[in-house]
Amino acid sequence: MTAPTELEVRIQPAAAVSIADVSKVFGNGRGSVAALDHISLDVAPAEFVCLLGASGCGKSTLLNIIAGLDQPTSGQVNVRANRTGLMFQEAALFPWLTARGNVELALKLGGVGRDERRKRTDQLLEMVHLGDFAKKRPHELSGGMRQRVALARALAQDAEVLLMDEPFGALDAMTRDRLHDELETVWRDTRRTVIFVTHNVREAVRLGDRVVLLASRPGRVAEIFPVEIPRPRRIDSAEVATLAAAITDRLRAEVSNGR
């Protein structure tokens, strides 16, 4: 795949996120490590894209660059939104604030006024089914509940683009299933653009409109799989399993190539 030129980037103004020929090198000289190698990808508004790859493929680095927490060594990222919401593998909630306080702080830092803030916080907590747990502190919540609070907090940023870095990686399978359903509903209702990083092939197929398979060392786009399975999907359905198997084969080939 060749990198898009400046012109190509400009004639696709509809992309919510456009990643153009992005490379990232850590360190310099002989000790330098290429983390990302000429990655190009356009994500349409309201699209759900999963970045899939083995560890070390630079998927988190790419996400950090999109979030603006890190700068690419070369290439360009254009995010057609004032800012991006970001969710981590750990909920990263502030332990001194209640569930409600965590969500409300995001609104406060986003400059939302007090009355509006209260209303929106209630709505967001309802959306992730935590209305009854608003007054609990993070250490009083289960892992799944904490990730729900983190999701509500990310949504509170009112960012058009939501970046998720293996957000359900530390959860048990049943909780993860429920959160997939909830995330899908939230995504459908709020029309956000989601870029979701995972190393779980089935999870990627379950959630994504497209699955972008990244190859490792250095990270580059190996192949893009469109997922045409109608929603709502089930992670244990035959269609999901079939596509997941195909992607897994490709991933295996990639990993053995790398060695």
């Binding site: 927490l69 502030f94 830092l109 986003g110």
Partner: peptide, 27 residues
């Protein structure tokens, strides 16, 4: 550091990072 990052993602920089993240975390 994770909380600092979370704060930064939410838009807490400079003084507001101090007010909403560093001070309560250090309490």
């Amino acid at each position: 550091p994770l909380l600092m990052r979370a704060g930064r993602v939410l838009g807490a920089r400079g003084f507001s990072a101090l007010r909403y993240v560093v001070v309560p975390a250090a309490l």
